[in-house]
Simulated assay, not measured.
Amino acid sequence: MATEPKMSRKDKRAAKKAETDPLKMSRRRQVVETYRMSKQGDPRIGLWMLGSFLVFGALGFGLFTLLPGSGTAKMVFAIIGGVMIGFLAMMIVFSRRAQNAAFKRLEGQAGAGARALSMLRRGWRVDEVVGFTKQQDMVHRVVGPPGIVLVGEGNPNRLKALMAGERRKHERVASETPIHEVIVGNGEGQVPLPKLMKHVRKLGRQVKPAEVTDLLARLRALDAQRPKVPLPRGPVPTSMKGMRGNMRGR
């Protein structure tokens, strides 16, 4: 009788990683894992989801019953429409509260801003830790419609010099491109982590898509002149990435 071949340590590690990597999970598993992790930081997420389903489902049912027609077909149509509207509302609530729960878990961690910025969709390029200090202050770079956005994390006093230096470096290779500075935090003049993406998107459209390609080429030349520092990655940022892919489809 043939025996099953034993898995090597390398294969076991790969299989274990695949089990926890949202990009390799099924869509149902992504939702389950995202819900499980979100519930740790937001114990009432299940009640909010149920409430939104019932409230908006009932509203949808009521709206569909007002449509012309009568009989069993109209009732079935109203029930299906109510369920669909309720489910849509529930998924919107789930997405928002899961994202907020993830941001809460990220706050205070090194590289939290970069993890939040990774949620930006197409049209944005995020480069993590383009500048840093030994005290783990760091500057990330976002390239998109507003131009160049330098996002600082860490001690505000140390970040002033670090961000000023990064601004000078970027001005040398992209003098005509608008450069914005943002510091992540809860102090005066800072942007809280949950509002970071929204703040960056609201900086406006100052660079045309055709100009971004040339800009990225010049920035690659700048980055080639300096070393990169590895950014520690935790389970929460990965879950955020999986949640984003699951909510908008692969």
Rank of each mutant, 00 (worst) to 15 (best):
P5V: 08
R9C: 09
K12W: 03
A14D: 09
K17M: 01
P22Q: 00
P22F: 01
R29A: 11
R29C: 04
Q30C: 11
V31C: 12
V32F: 11
M37N: 12
K39P: 10
Q40D: 07
G41L: 00
G41D: 08
G41T: 03
P43Q: 11
P43F: 08
R44W: 14
R44C: 06
R44H: 10
W48G: 08
M49L: 08
M49R: 08
S52Y: 05
S52P: 04
S52F: 06
F56D: 01
F56P: 01
G57D: 04
A58T: 15
F64S: 12
L66C: 15
P68H: 02
G69C: 04
S70K: 14
S70Q: 05
A73M: 15
A73F: 15
A73T: 05
K74H: 11
F77T: 14
F77Y: 13
A78G: 05
A78Y: 06
I80K: 09
G81Y: 01
A89D: 01
V93W: 00
S95L: 10
A98W: 05
Q99D: 13
Q99R: 04
A101W: 01
A101S: 10
A102I: 04
A102V: 03
F103A: 04
K104W: 10
K104V: 06
L106E: 04
E107P: 00
A116Q: 09
L120I: 07
R122P: 11
W124P: 02
R125K: 12
V126A: 05
E128M: 13
V129P: 00
V130F: 05
G131Y: 02
F132R: 05
F132Y: 12
F132I: 02
F132W: 11
K134N: 00
Q136L: 14
D137S: 00
D137M: 01
M138R: 10
H140E: 01
R141K: 12
V143E: 12
L150F: 00
N155D: 14
L159D: 07
L162F: 10
A164G: 11
R167E: 07
R167P: 03
R168G: 08
H170T: 11
V173F: 06
A174Y: 05
S175D: 04
S175N: 07
I183G: 05
G185P: 06
G185Y: 05
N186P: 01
E188T: 04
G189K: 03
L193T: 05
K195A: 13
H199D: 02
V200I: 12
R201Q: 05
L203A: 10
L203M: 15
G204F: 04
R205H: 14
R205K: 12
V207F: 01
K208C: 08
P209T: 13
E211W: 03
E211T: 00
V212H: 09
T213N: 15
D214A: 14
L215R: 02
L216Q: 15
L219A: 08
A221R: 15
L222R: 13
L222D: 15
A224D: 13
A224F: 13
Q225D: 12
Q225W: 08
R226W: 01
R226G: 12
K228S: 10
V236E: 07
P237L: 08
T238A: 03
G242T: 01
M243S: 06
G245C: 13
N246S: 01
R248W: 00
G249N: 02
R250G: 12
R250I: 11
R250S: 10
R250Q: 09
